[in-house]
Nucleic acid binder design. Structure first.
Lengths: 206, 206
DNA sequence: AATACCAACCGACAACTTGTCGGTTAAGAG
DNA sequence: CTCTTAACCGACAAGTTGTCGGTTGGTATT
């Protein structure tokens, strides 16, 4: 008797396997055969649920980024907190962004994961940049920031943040800390925030 | 009678073909068979000159970036020009960076070129960031800039510049111009340059 | 409780990949 | 005129993705 599951269950099962395998071997080197072997299904079954290997990757990227983006959204909208706090909240969620998918993040900058990396980056940027931009614009109006280009500043913050805190395994803790400080310092200057205001607010998160 | 060429000649021939094919179809979708068919050599010949398909990519990336990096180096070292001019010189060479390899740049952000994209980015960053950092540090000493973190500011400038002016085909000229202005504006603020000084210097290039 | 339907499942197979390897040949050295 | 060797060749192994006709388990219908 063959085992039958709902499409949703099976899809998740496939994504779970893909996530592990892509993290361990990279997208290029993990084959669809590896996936089906891992969960014991036939080739046809895999392609019944996903149209191609890349479609699996897309679904996985979607699943991996959804949580982070949703969290960022709720942070931005929660006006119980001042703008500064909400901004630092997002920034810290960017550089942490590990949590569950930490090991995949660590593998991501490796060459054989270029596609995964690019797709995640694109989704994170599209999802989070508008949120940061909105916050900066708000801060602009309320007088705590001052910049002519909130949208572009947000892009710069997000893109750099995403790349710079990515391939950092070879840095000492001290270097990492310096890099983080410099990041905050540069952001403050760029959006015209009072020197030290972001850093101060960021400290409250730890 | 079979045609024999020097290793250098043959390698360039292979890289030429690879460049065209990767630009047209992407690295993933262009096969080694496409390459050897295009120049009429046998499989074994290709692998006599390059150890793997990825090695071809690496050599190609090296060839494509070498010229730009060399140019940036000479710009930085040429102290006949003031610091401001040298900095804007590099910046414009980043966002232009087209010239010969323009069409490949236009294809580069597409998904099937993620690896090429990543490798070029890495090389450009490693090659150019130290140059920008040095310029900023010099400007710092001479009093025209003011920042605590020249190195990190340089990273941010380069990384954002590289990504932002990359997938821009879908922007109107007007939007592009705004983006460019914002980029310069943000850099000025970040490195503590006098407002408008960079932009003014940049105009002299056109 | 028999019937019919269909989504989930299967695995052989086609068509392609990359990389290997033993053998061949042009061209220069001695 | 040989000898050596770097450049060259193409058949082949081992693997990859995606397809497709056919099977089967659950579920709705009567």
């Amino acid at each position: 008797m063959r085992i039958v599951k709902t499409a949703q269950e099976r899809k998740n099962e496939i994504l779970d396997a893909a996530e592990e395998l892509f993290a361990a071997k990279g997208y290029d080197n993990a084959s669809t055969n590896d996936i089906i072997a891992k969960i014991g299904i036939a080739r046809g079954t895999l392609y019944h649920h996903f149209g191609s290997k890349e479609e699996i990757l897309d679904a996985l990227v979607e699943r991996m980024t959804r949580e982070g983006i949703d969290r960022a959204k709720t942070i931005v909208r929660d006006d119980r907190y001042p703008i500064l706090e909400r901004l630092t909240g997002i920034l810290s969620s960017i550089s942490v962004k590990g949590g569950a998918g930490k090991e995949i993040m660590e593998q991501m900058h490796k060459p054989h994961n270029a596609l995964l990396h690019q797709k995640m980056q694109e989704r994170l940027i599209n999802g989070v940049v508008p949120l940061i931009a909105q916050l900066i614009a708000e801060g602009n109006e309320s007088g705590i920031f001052e910049t002519k280009y909130p949208e572009e500043a947000a892009e710069m913050i997000m893109i750099y943040g995403n790349i710079a805190f990515d391939d950092n395994e070879n840095l000492t803790p001290k270097q990492k800390q310096k890099k983080g400080k410099a990041y905050i310092y540069n952001i403050e200057k760029m959006i015209g925030a009072k020197a030290g205001s972001l850093e101060k607010s960021l400290l409250r998160f730890f």
